[in-house]
């Protein structure tokens, strides 16, 4: 916990909103501009990691409890695989998006949007979970020693 870094704390508070907004932009605009689930997930996780670095692990874990993070890891993969099975049940092949809407192009758009959401969820949750796992162990170097 960085009690003494006033500038860092103020800048972090200003930055976290735009970072999360940018993550959503990269996530849902991935069909039109560079980006997609992987990048968006990492950027989304960065917002929480930044918050954790500056305000401490216990504060960020109030916003995003480890229990939720662990469930999100699985949920993202399930959404992806579930989209594949949805294609299967709607008369297509596994991961065939053409059947997900009334016409193939819309089906492709829907499929890509949904699986990218799954990718983003898993990646973001994994990154946050790894950060929690590292940060939760008692450090051997105190804050002042850096």
């Amino acid at each position: 916990m960085m009690r003494h870094h006033v500038i860092l704390r103020v800048i972090t508070k200003v930055l976290i909103g735009p970072i999360i907004l940018f993550a959503f932009y990269v996530q849902f605009h991935g069909d039109y501009s560079p980006g997609g689930g992987f990048q968006a997930g990492v950027i989304f996780a960065v917002a929480f990691i930044l918050h954790g670095l500056v305000f401490g692990l216990s504060t960020v874990q109030k916003v995003m409890p480890p229990k939720w993070v662990h469930k999100l890891i699985a949920l993202g993969l399930l959404i992806y695989a579930g989209t594949g099975f949805a294609g299967l049940f709607m008369g297509g092949q596994f991961l065939e998006y053409n059947v997900l809407a009334h016409d193939p192009i819309h089906g492709q758009h829907n499929g890509i949007l949904i699986i990218e959401l799954g990718v983003g969820m898993t990646v973001a949750a994994v990154m946050i979970a790894i950060y929690y796992a590292f940060a939760a162990r008692p450090p051997r170097i105190s804050d002042e020693e850096w």
Binding site: G30, D31, Y32, S33, P34, G36, Y97, P104, I105, Q108, H109, G111, I112, I115, E116
Partner: peptide, 14 residues
């Protein structure tokens, strides 16, 4: 077939 401007996304996701 996919009609997505970002071909990288189209190839990776579809």
């Amino acid at each position: 077939e996919v009609d997505v401007p970002n071909f990288v996304t189209a190839i990776l996701a579809s």
